[in-house]
Amino acid sequence: MLASEEHARVGALRARRATAHHVTVAPGVDIAYVVDDYTDGWTTPPVVMLLHGIGESAEAFAGWAPRLARHCRVVRVDLRGYGLSSPVDEHAALSIEAMADDIDALAARLGGAIHVVGAKLGAQVALALAQRGAPWMASLTLAGVLISPGGALGKWVDDWLRLVDRSGVEGWARATMPGRMGSALTPQAMEWWTRYMGEAPAGAVKACFRMLPRLAEPSRLEAIRCPTQVIVAVQPERPGAYDQRQSVAEVRRWQSRIPGSALVELQADSYHIAATHPDACAALTLSFIERISS
Protein backbone atom coordinates (compact mmCIF):
# COMPACT_ATOMS: atom_id res chain seq x y z
CA MET A 1 0.00 0.00 0.00
CA LEU A 2 1.33 3.45 -0.88
CA ALA A 3 2.18 5.78 1.99
CA SER A 4 -0.48 8.24 0.81
CA GLU A 5 -3.12 5.50 0.72
CA GLU A 6 -2.16 4.31 4.21
CA HIS A 7 -2.29 7.89 5.52
CA ALA A 8 -5.78 8.35 4.06
CA ARG A 9 -6.97 5.04 5.49
CA VAL A 10 -5.68 5.84 8.97
CA GLY A 11 -7.21 9.31 8.79
CA ALA A 12 -10.59 7.88 7.82
CA LEU A 13 -10.42 5.34 10.67
CA ARG A 14 -9.58 8.05 13.21
CA ALA A 15 -12.47 10.18 11.97
CA ARG A 16 -14.81 7.23 12.30
CA ARG A 17 -13.61 6.45 15.81
CA ALA A 18 -14.54 10.01 16.75
CA THR A 19 -18.08 9.74 15.36
CA ALA A 20 -18.98 6.10 16.08
CA HIS A 21 -21.67 5.25 18.61
CA HIS A 22 -21.20 2.39 21.10
CA VAL A 23 -23.86 0.36 22.89
CA THR A 24 -23.24 -2.34 25.51
CA VAL A 25 -25.50 -5.20 24.44
CA ALA A 26 -24.28 -7.92 26.82
CA PRO A 27 -21.66 -8.22 29.58
CA GLY A 28 -18.32 -7.49 27.93
CA VAL A 29 -19.84 -6.94 24.48
CA ASP A 30 -20.07 -3.51 22.90
CA ILE A 31 -21.48 -2.96 19.42
CA ALA A 32 -20.35 0.05 17.40
CA TYR A 33 -22.28 1.74 14.64
CA VAL A 34 -22.24 4.87 12.52
CA VAL A 35 -25.23 6.89 11.35
CA ASP A 36 -25.66 8.48 7.92
CA ASP A 37 -28.60 10.89 7.80
CA TYR A 38 -29.03 13.58 5.16
CA THR A 39 -32.81 13.69 5.31
CA ASP A 40 -34.84 16.88 5.59
CA GLY A 41 -35.17 18.07 9.17
CA TRP A 42 -38.94 18.39 9.03
CA THR A 43 -39.48 14.73 8.06
CA THR A 44 -39.56 11.51 10.06
CA PRO A 45 -37.43 9.21 7.91
CA PRO A 46 -37.47 5.42 8.12
CA VAL A 47 -34.49 3.79 9.84
CA VAL A 48 -32.43 1.26 7.86
CA MET A 49 -29.86 -0.99 9.54
CA LEU A 50 -27.11 -2.57 7.40
CA LEU A 51 -25.37 -5.80 8.52
CA HIS A 52 -22.11 -6.84 6.85
CA GLY A 53 -20.28 -10.08 6.08
CA ILE A 54 -17.24 -11.96 7.37
CA GLY A 55 -14.02 -9.96 7.19
CA GLU A 56 -15.87 -6.66 6.89
CA SER A 57 -17.25 -3.80 8.98
CA ALA A 58 -19.59 -0.84 8.60
CA GLU A 59 -17.32 0.47 5.80
CA ALA A 60 -18.52 -2.34 3.54
CA PHE A 61 -21.77 -0.42 3.05
CA ALA A 62 -20.22 2.99 2.38
CA GLY A 63 -21.34 2.76 -1.25
CA TRP A 64 -24.96 2.38 -0.14
CA ALA A 65 -25.02 5.48 2.02
CA PRO A 66 -25.31 8.22 -0.65
CA ARG A 67 -28.52 6.77 -2.11
CA LEU A 68 -30.17 5.67 1.13
CA ALA A 69 -29.16 8.47 3.51
CA ARG A 70 -30.98 11.21 1.60
CA HIS A 71 -34.27 9.44 2.35
CA CYS A 72 -33.52 7.26 5.40
CA ARG A 73 -31.62 7.33 8.66
CA VAL A 74 -28.94 4.73 7.90
CA VAL A 75 -27.35 2.73 10.71
CA ARG A 76 -24.22 0.86 9.60
CA VAL A 77 -23.24 -1.70 12.23
CA ASP A 78 -19.95 -3.38 13.14
CA LEU A 79 -20.94 -6.94 14.01
CA ARG A 80 -19.34 -8.51 17.07
CA GLY A 81 -15.62 -9.03 16.48
CA TYR A 82 -15.31 -6.51 13.67
CA GLY A 83 -14.53 -2.84 13.23
CA LEU A 84 -14.90 -0.94 16.50
CA SER A 85 -17.08 -3.55 18.21
CA SER A 86 -15.80 -5.87 20.93
CA PRO A 87 -13.17 -8.39 19.75
CA VAL A 88 -13.77 -12.13 19.44
CA ASP A 89 -11.24 -14.86 20.22
CA GLU A 90 -10.76 -17.37 17.43
CA HIS A 91 -11.89 -20.21 19.71
CA ALA A 92 -14.93 -18.39 21.06
CA ALA A 93 -18.22 -20.29 20.87
CA LEU A 94 -19.67 -17.81 18.42
CA SER A 95 -23.19 -18.35 17.09
CA ILE A 96 -25.64 -16.62 14.77
CA GLU A 97 -28.17 -16.54 17.61
CA ALA A 98 -25.73 -14.67 19.86
CA MET A 99 -24.97 -12.19 17.10
CA ALA A 100 -28.72 -11.78 16.54
CA ASP A 101 -29.09 -11.09 20.28
CA ASP A 102 -26.55 -8.27 19.86
CA ILE A 103 -28.61 -6.66 17.13
CA ASP A 104 -31.87 -7.20 19.02
CA ALA A 105 -30.41 -5.34 22.01
CA LEU A 106 -29.06 -2.58 19.77
CA ALA A 107 -32.47 -2.18 18.12
CA ALA A 108 -34.11 -1.87 21.53
CA ARG A 109 -31.75 0.98 22.38
CA LEU A 110 -32.40 2.72 19.06
CA GLY A 111 -36.18 2.36 19.43
CA GLY A 112 -38.90 2.30 16.80
CA ALA A 113 -39.30 0.30 13.62
CA ILE A 114 -36.16 -0.63 11.69
CA HIS A 115 -35.74 -1.96 8.16
CA VAL A 116 -32.90 -4.51 8.08
CA VAL A 117 -30.52 -5.25 5.21
CA GLY A 118 -28.21 -8.24 5.49
CA ALA A 119 -25.36 -9.41 3.28
CA LYS A 120 -23.51 -12.72 3.73
CA LEU A 121 -22.94 -13.20 7.49
CA GLY A 122 -25.23 -10.24 8.14
CA ALA A 123 -27.94 -11.98 6.13
CA GLN A 124 -27.73 -14.98 8.47
CA VAL A 125 -28.13 -12.68 11.48
CA ALA A 126 -31.04 -10.88 9.81
CA LEU A 127 -32.76 -14.18 8.97
CA ALA A 128 -32.45 -15.31 12.59
CA LEU A 129 -34.12 -12.10 13.76
CA ALA A 130 -36.89 -12.36 11.16
CA GLN A 131 -37.64 -15.97 12.11
CA ARG A 132 -37.96 -14.87 15.73
CA GLY A 133 -40.54 -12.32 14.69
CA ALA A 134 -38.58 -9.41 16.18
CA PRO A 135 -41.37 -6.85 16.68
CA TRP A 136 -39.21 -3.88 15.70
CA MET A 137 -38.27 -5.38 12.32
CA ALA A 138 -40.18 -3.42 9.68
CA SER A 139 -38.78 -5.29 6.69
CA LEU A 140 -35.95 -7.55 5.54
CA THR A 141 -33.77 -7.21 2.46
CA LEU A 142 -31.23 -9.92 1.69
CA ALA A 143 -28.50 -8.80 -0.71
CA GLY A 144 -26.20 -11.77 -1.06
CA VAL A 145 -27.06 -14.78 1.09
CA LEU A 146 -26.23 -18.48 1.15
CA ILE A 147 -29.24 -20.18 2.63
CA SER A 148 -27.08 -23.11 3.81
CA PRO A 149 -23.55 -21.83 4.52
CA GLY A 150 -22.62 -25.23 5.96
CA GLY A 151 -23.51 -26.97 2.73
CA ALA A 152 -21.99 -24.34 0.46
CA LEU A 153 -18.86 -23.40 2.40
CA GLY A 154 -18.31 -26.06 5.04
CA LYS A 155 -16.08 -28.13 2.75
CA TRP A 156 -13.62 -25.23 2.53
CA VAL A 157 -13.36 -24.28 6.19
CA ASP A 158 -10.18 -26.27 6.92
CA ASP A 159 -8.54 -24.82 3.79
CA TRP A 160 -9.55 -21.31 4.81
CA LEU A 161 -8.22 -21.71 8.34
CA ARG A 162 -4.89 -22.86 6.91
CA LEU A 163 -4.85 -19.92 4.51
CA VAL A 164 -5.28 -17.47 7.39
CA ASP A 165 -2.60 -19.22 9.47
CA ARG A 166 -0.18 -19.24 6.55
CA SER A 167 -0.88 -15.94 4.78
CA GLY A 168 -3.05 -13.90 7.12
CA VAL A 169 -6.60 -12.73 6.50
CA GLU A 170 -5.42 -10.89 3.39
CA GLY A 171 -4.09 -14.14 1.96
CA TRP A 172 -7.49 -15.76 2.47
CA ALA A 173 -9.27 -12.74 0.98
CA ARG A 174 -6.98 -12.76 -2.06
CA ALA A 175 -7.48 -16.47 -2.71
CA THR A 176 -11.27 -16.32 -2.38
CA MET A 177 -12.02 -12.92 -3.91
CA PRO A 178 -12.77 -14.14 -7.48
CA GLY A 179 -15.28 -16.67 -6.17
CA ARG A 180 -16.92 -13.91 -4.15
CA MET A 181 -16.90 -10.98 -6.58
CA GLY A 182 -17.02 -12.67 -9.98
CA SER A 183 -15.92 -10.41 -12.84
CA ALA A 184 -17.88 -7.33 -11.75
CA LEU A 185 -15.03 -5.25 -10.30
CA THR A 186 -12.05 -3.52 -11.85
CA PRO A 187 -8.58 -4.76 -10.84
CA GLN A 188 -8.22 -1.66 -8.66
CA ALA A 189 -11.51 -2.38 -6.89
CA MET A 190 -10.59 -6.04 -6.37
CA GLU A 191 -7.31 -4.96 -4.81
CA TRP A 192 -9.08 -2.46 -2.53
CA TRP A 193 -11.54 -5.07 -1.30
CA THR A 194 -8.76 -7.60 -0.80
CA ARG A 195 -6.73 -5.21 1.36
CA TYR A 196 -9.79 -3.94 3.20
CA MET A 197 -10.96 -7.44 4.14
CA GLY A 198 -7.36 -8.37 4.90
CA GLU A 199 -7.39 -5.85 7.75
CA ALA A 200 -10.13 -7.75 9.60
CA PRO A 201 -9.10 -9.38 12.91
CA ALA A 202 -7.93 -12.95 12.34
CA GLY A 203 -9.61 -14.12 15.55
CA ALA A 204 -13.08 -12.99 14.47
CA VAL A 205 -12.62 -14.34 10.95
CA LYS A 206 -11.51 -17.77 12.18
CA ALA A 207 -14.29 -17.92 14.78
CA CYS A 208 -16.80 -17.24 12.00
CA PHE A 209 -15.23 -19.92 9.80
CA ARG A 210 -15.62 -22.47 12.59
CA MET A 211 -19.27 -21.51 12.91
CA LEU A 212 -20.07 -22.08 9.21
CA PRO A 213 -20.47 -25.90 9.20
CA ARG A 214 -23.25 -25.58 11.78
CA LEU A 215 -25.33 -23.26 9.58
CA ALA A 216 -27.88 -25.33 7.68
CA GLU A 217 -30.92 -24.12 5.77
CA PRO A 218 -33.23 -22.40 8.28
CA SER A 219 -36.18 -24.51 9.34
CA ARG A 220 -38.55 -21.64 10.08
CA LEU A 221 -38.54 -19.50 6.94
CA GLU A 222 -42.32 -19.94 6.86
CA ALA A 223 -42.49 -18.11 10.21
CA ILE A 224 -41.16 -14.85 8.75
CA ARG A 225 -43.92 -12.25 8.73
CA CYS A 226 -42.15 -8.98 7.93
CA PRO A 227 -42.10 -7.86 4.26
CA THR A 228 -39.08 -9.52 2.67
CA GLN A 229 -37.10 -8.87 -0.49
CA VAL A 230 -34.36 -11.14 -1.80
CA ILE A 231 -31.96 -9.67 -4.37
CA VAL A 232 -30.21 -12.33 -6.44
CA ALA A 233 -27.53 -12.06 -9.11
CA VAL A 234 -28.37 -13.50 -12.51
CA GLN A 235 -25.07 -14.99 -13.57
CA PRO A 236 -23.73 -17.30 -16.27
CA GLU A 237 -22.12 -20.55 -15.26
CA ARG A 238 -18.44 -19.81 -14.60
CA PRO A 239 -17.00 -22.31 -12.13
CA GLY A 240 -13.88 -21.25 -10.29
CA ALA A 241 -11.96 -21.71 -7.05
CA TYR A 242 -14.14 -21.16 -3.99
CA ASP A 243 -17.07 -20.10 -6.19
CA GLN A 244 -19.78 -18.95 -3.77
CA ARG A 245 -22.51 -18.13 -6.26
CA GLN A 246 -25.78 -20.04 -6.46
CA SER A 247 -28.37 -20.47 -9.16
CA VAL A 248 -31.49 -18.34 -9.38
CA ALA A 249 -33.55 -21.54 -9.25
CA GLU A 250 -31.98 -22.48 -5.91
CA VAL A 251 -32.60 -19.01 -4.49
CA ARG A 252 -36.19 -19.08 -5.72
CA ARG A 253 -36.71 -22.49 -4.08
CA TRP A 254 -36.02 -21.25 -0.55
CA GLN A 255 -37.26 -17.69 -1.09
CA SER A 256 -40.68 -19.10 -1.95
CA ARG A 257 -40.86 -20.51 1.60
CA ILE A 258 -41.00 -16.95 3.01
CA PRO A 259 -44.66 -15.85 2.91
CA GLY A 260 -45.30 -12.93 0.56
CA SER A 261 -41.62 -12.40 -0.19
CA ALA A 262 -40.33 -10.93 -3.45
CA LEU A 263 -37.38 -12.11 -5.56
CA VAL A 264 -35.58 -9.40 -7.53
CA GLU A 265 -33.07 -10.39 -10.20
CA LEU A 266 -29.97 -8.25 -10.67
CA GLN A 267 -27.81 -8.51 -13.77
CA ALA A 268 -24.53 -9.49 -12.12
CA ASP A 269 -22.23 -12.51 -11.89
CA SER A 270 -21.07 -12.01 -8.30
CA TYR A 271 -22.20 -13.50 -5.01
CA HIS A 272 -21.29 -10.39 -3.01
CA ILE A 273 -23.66 -8.04 -4.84
CA ALA A 274 -23.74 -5.65 -1.88
CA ALA A 275 -20.09 -4.86 -2.70
CA THR A 276 -20.06 -5.16 -6.49
CA HIS A 277 -23.38 -3.38 -7.15
CA PRO A 278 -23.98 -1.01 -4.20
CA ASP A 279 -25.89 1.62 -6.18
CA ALA A 280 -28.30 -0.87 -7.71
CA CYS A 281 -28.83 -2.71 -4.40
CA ALA A 282 -29.39 0.54 -2.51
CA ALA A 283 -31.89 1.73 -5.13
CA LEU A 284 -33.81 -1.57 -4.95
CA THR A 285 -33.83 -1.41 -1.16
CA LEU A 286 -35.07 2.18 -1.08
CA SER A 287 -37.80 1.43 -3.63
CA PHE A 288 -38.89 -1.58 -1.56
CA ILE A 289 -39.04 0.41 1.68
CA GLU A 290 -40.98 3.24 0.05
CA ARG A 291 -43.41 0.79 -1.55
CA ILE A 292 -44.25 -1.10 1.64
CA SER A 293 -44.42 2.14 3.64
CA SER A 294 -46.88 3.93 1.36
Rank of each mutant, 00 (worst) to 15 (best):
Ser4Pro: 00
Glu6Cys: 00
Arg9Cys: 02
Arg9Asn: 04
Arg9Tyr: 10
Ala15Pro: 04
Ala15Gly: 09
Arg16Ala: 08
Arg16Gly: 00
Thr19Gly: 00
Val23Leu: 10
Val29Asp: 04
Asp30Lys: 10
Ala32Asn: 03
Val34Pro: 03
Val35Leu: 06
Thr43Phe: 02
Thr43Gly: 00
Met49Gln: 09
Leu51Cys: 04
Ile54Pro: 00
Gly55Trp: 00
Glu56Thr: 10
Phe61Asn: 02
Trp64Glu: 02
Pro66Asn: 12
Pro66Cys: 09
Leu68Cys: 06
Arg70Leu: 13
Cys72His: 09
Arg73Gly: 04
Arg73Lys: 09
Val74Tyr: 02
Arg76Gln: 12
Gly81Lys: 14
Gly83Phe: 01
Ser85Asn: 02
Pro87Ile: 10
Leu94Val: 15
Glu97Leu: 11
Met99Asn: 11
Ala100His: 04
Ala100Tyr: 05
Asp101Met: 07
Ile103Glu: 05
Leu106Met: 12
Arg109Leu: 01
Gly111Met: 10
Ala113Ile: 01
Lys120Ile: 01
Lys120Pro: 01
Leu121Val: 05
Leu127Ser: 09
Leu129Asn: 10
Ala130Asp: 05
Gln131Met: 15
Trp136Met: 07
Trp136Phe: 07
Met137Cys: 15
Leu142Pro: 12
Leu146His: 14
Ser148Val: 07
Ser148Asp: 15
Pro149Leu: 04
Gly150Phe: 12
Lys155Val: 09
Asp158Met: 11
Trp160Gln: 14
Leu161Met: 10
Arg162Val: 08
Arg162Gly: 02
Leu163Gly: 05
Val164Ala: 11
Val169Cys: 08
Glu170Val: 08
Ala175Ser: 10
Thr176Pro: 04
Pro178Gly: 13
Gly179Met: 07
Arg180Pro: 01
Gly182Asn: 05
Ala184Val: 14
Ala184Met: 14
Leu185Thr: 12
Gln188Phe: 08
Gln188Lys: 12
Ala189Phe: 01
Met190Arg: 13
Pro201Tyr: 06
Ala202Tyr: 03
Gly203Ile: 10
Ala204Tyr: 04
Cys208Gly: 09
Phe209Trp: 10
Arg210Gly: 15
Leu215Asp: 09
Glu217Met: 14
Arg225Glu: 15
Cys226Ser: 13
Pro227Asn: 12
Ile231Met: 13
Val232Asp: 03
Ala233Cys: 07
Pro236Glu: 06
Pro239Thr: 04
Gln244Cys: 07
Gln244Ile: 02
Arg245Lys: 11
Ser256Asp: 14
Arg257Trp: 06
Pro259Glu: 11
Pro259Trp: 06
Gly260Phe: 11
Gly260Gln: 11
Ser261Asn: 08
Ala262Trp: 04
Ala268Lys: 03
Ser270Asn: 07
Ala274Trp: 02
Ala275Asn: 05
Pro278Val: 06
Asp279Lys: 06
Ala280Asp: 12
Ala283Pro: 01
Ser287His: 14
Ile289Asp: 09
Ile292Arg: 14
Ser293Ala: 15
